[in-house]
């Protein structure tokens, strides 16, 4: 088990190296890409010279691997360079936006678990009933409805019916926790609909698999209450699937934050990715996406390692 964790930990830097190389290649390899953005900052008549000086400023005249090496060396020390658009350092920007997205992500995962687990359990212990059928339709609808449409409806319909809209001016959690939650709850609910439906489906199917196994029958036969059988025996052994899915869903949440933050005007990392990609601000895009990918990699690692704690049968 220690060996397994060690192996996974060793793999993490290689993964990050591969991801950053791929991203760097995608964003930087095309000549003049980055300089073209800076191009907008200078007047058109002095373009040749201006481009040359911009390229020199950002080191774009160097070969690819020199550029990448320089970027990676600085990134390892927490320095992601400066934004091409406004020439401000990227790292403080990322640092101020990271907690915003982390809060949204955690709130979404919390809602996912609170809604998804009970729905899945209820569905599984009453298979084939009307309630089960209803919940199945609800959950399959939940995974089918696109989050940006749900978000649109959340903003539009209450405004029409009750002239109610979510708060728009974002306030940080440390400044005003109550109003902050009033704002963040809506994007979180929007994102949690699909993930909760997904989790409910997995809980249902993995619990149904174990519900008829021998050891569950034994537990019943020795006179355990149904509640104890379901929660202690069936649910616990289904936890592996559930942890995996919640882990994978965190990835979906990270991607979904790009959309939710844009719609609800949350100044998080997702919005930063979107803005920087659209405005071709490559240094910012690269840094923000790498931070996302890093979080995703770590979550996956934690998920895999946590299997061993949930299911003692698994020994790596």
């Amino acid at each position: 088990m220690q060996a397994y964790i060690a192996r996974r930990l060793i793999a993490v830097p290689f993964m990050l190296f591969g991801m950053s190389l791929l991203l760097f290649w995608l964003l930087f390899l095309r000549p003049g890409n980055a300089a073209l953005t800076g191009f907008g900052l200078v007047s058109p008549d002095q373009n040749a010279q201006a481009i040359a000086s911009l390229e020199e400023e950002f080191g774009l005249d160097k070969p690819f691997f020199v550029q990448y090496g320089k970027w990676a060396w600085n990134a390892l020390q927490g320095d992601f360079g400066i934004s091409l658009k406004n020439r401000r350092p990227v790292t403080p920007e990322i640092r101020s936006r990271l907690p915003v997205t982390a809060e949204l992500g955690l709130l979404t995962v919390l809602l996912t678990a609170v809604i998804g687990l009970p729905v899945g359990i209820i569905s599984a212990i009453r298979p084939g009933t009307f309630l089960d059928g209803l919940l199945r339709i609800v959950t399959i609808s939940g995974i089918s409805v696109p989050n940006f449409w749900v978000a649109t409806l959340v903003i539009t319909l209450p405004a029409i019916w009750w002239a109610w809209t979510p708060l728009w001016e974002y306030v940080r959690f440390e400044d005003d926790p109550i109003n902050n939650l009033k704002i963040v709850i809506w994007p979180a609910v929007t994102l949690a609909i699909a993930t909760a439906a997904y989790v409910a489906r997995i809980v249902r199917s993995s619990m149904l698999e174990t519900l008829y196994s021998d050891y569950v029958r034994t537990a019943r036969a020795k006179g355990l209450r149904e509640r104890a059988v379901v929660l202690r025996h069936v649910f616990r052994s289904s936890m592996i699937a559930v942890i995996t899915v919640i882990g994978i869903q965190l990835g979906a949440v990270l991607g979904g934050s790009v959309i939710a933050e844009q719609i609800f005007g949350i100044p998080g990392l997702g919005l930063l990715v979107f803005e920087s990609v659209v405005s071709i601000d490559y240094t910012v895009a690269l840094a923000a996406i790498m931070v996302f990918a890093f979080m995703f990699t770590i979550v996956n690692l934690v998920v895999d390692v946590s299997y061993t704690f949930v299911d003692p049968r698994i020994r790596y």
């Binding site: 979906a252 991607g255 990715v273 990609v277």
Partner: peptide, 26 residues
Amino acid sequence: GRVADVLIAFPSILFALTLHASLRDE
């Protein structure tokens, strides 16, 4: 397998956004 690992490690929307930024003129 490792290439797949790397590609899967990006949330899909983010990766598609990146590709779009990179390829859109060509």
